[in-house]
């Protein structure tokens, strides 16, 4: 016969085991989950949107929030971006910061995010969805950007000459806005400057280079090129370099995907850059404010920054192009 105390001992052990397992389960389930904000730019691995990662990480520093950063492998891979948005919805993120790859295709996924109560901030280029109801926009002032390009062109050509506009892409409302504002400004203030060629843009650098070469061959007296997107800028500069065109043909570029290398590209006059770092930072701040039930702006318009040969080393420009999104978390020393 088992003595009563031994029976009680085994019962006690069983109780202990059950209690321990239950406690572990309760602790595991009740452990606070880090609130995640998904930041999905047009693409990753280029220098245009990496500063937005820096800005987002800066904004969440010390807040207990964390950033989930991922993007399609190509700027035009809309399907992959939609898939990422859907996954963010499934993960029940606290907020979504999105740089849409296409104006129309992202409408439904964004509306679905809003229907799930996710605070959404669209940065860079707008979508045709009215702001409000958890949707905010942080946009580049593309009207001002177009005006800046026109004003700069006026200075370069002294009010007379021809210009080709490359990189027109209807997928991005921002690009279309800047193109229209550029031409409207020219028509209004510089009637002596004529737009002689308008070419569609894409994210294919060699194709953009070929388009630029064709444009240069077709218009031998071209005074300047306005390239509205990064591959068009690179394509135009490569075409000018390969054709040994005179340095007087100047390029005004938009949104380059890296530090503007004026020394290597003598034809490059200036770059009108959207402040992606500030966009990423403000977007996350808006989501954080919404979580704390503070009033949030429905639309923020950020002025673009014109970077010239002279201002390229300015502190503001360095701050804009900062790449260290780890903000010192990864402390390493490199040696060769």
């Amino acid at each position: 016969m088992v003595p009563p105390d031994r029976c009680f001992g085994s019962t006690k052990i069983a109780y202990f085991v059950v209690t321990a397992i239950s406690s572990l389960w309760v602790v595991a389930c009740s452990a606070p989950r880090r609130t995640v904000i998904a930041v999905i730019p047009q693409t990753d691995g280029t220098m245009l949107w990496q500063p937005a990662h820096v800005g987002a990480e800066t904004a969440v520093r010390g807040s207990g929030l964390s950033i989930y950063w991922n993007a399609p492998a190509r700027e035009d891979d809309v399907e992959a971006q939609i898939d990422l948005v859907e996954r963010a919805i499934d993960r029940r993120v606290a907020g979504l910061v999105l740089v849409p790859d296409q104006a129309l295709s992202l409408i439904s996924p964004v509306r679905r995010s809003l229907a799930h109560g996710i605070q959404v901030v669209i940065i860079g280029s707008p979508l045709p969805i009215p702001a409000g109801n958890n949707l905010s926009y942080i946009l580049n002032d593309d009207v001002a950007a177009g005006h800046m390009a026109a004003q700069r062109l006026d200075v370069l050509l002294h009010g007379r000459g021809t210009v080709a506009v490359l990189g027109i892409d209807p997928d991005f409302m921002g690009i279309m806005i800047r193109e229209r504002s550029f031409e409207e400004y020219l028509a209004q203030h510089d009637p002596g400057i004529h737009v002689v060629d308008r070419e569609m843009g894409s994210f294919n650098f060699p194709q953009q280079q070929q388009i630029a070469q064709t444009t240069l061959r077709s218009h031998r007296d071209l005074g300047a090129i306005v390239a509205l997107m990064s591959p068009s800028v690179d394509g135009a500069l490569a075409a000018l370099a390969s054709m040994h065109v005179r340095q007087s043909v100047k390029v005004i570029g938009f949104d380059v995907s890296g530090w503007p290398l004026f020394d290597r590209n003598l034809n490059l006059d200036c770059v009108i850059q959207e402040n992606t770092r500030l966009m990423g930072q403000k977007a996350v701040e808006i989501i954080e404010a919404a979580r704390q039930h503070r009033p949030v702006p429905t639309q923020v318009i950020l002025p673009p920054v014109m970077i010239t040969r002279r201002s390229s080393d300015a502190a503001e420009v360095r701050w804009m192009f900062s790449q260290d999104w780890t903000l010192g978390r990864s402390k390493w020393s490199a040696q060769q």
Binding site: T43, D44, G45, Q50, H53, Y68, W69, N70, A71, P72, A73, A80, L84, Q323, D324, W325, T326, S330, W332, A334
Partner: peptide, 30 residues
Amino acid sequence: QGVNAYSGYYAGLRTGDNSLVLGRADHGWM
């Protein structure tokens, strides 16, 4: 799936600047 969507270290041979690159990816590239 994603450009830098992993946590780990990567070393590669890059043609653009003819260099051996080394860095860390943590859903972002450093």
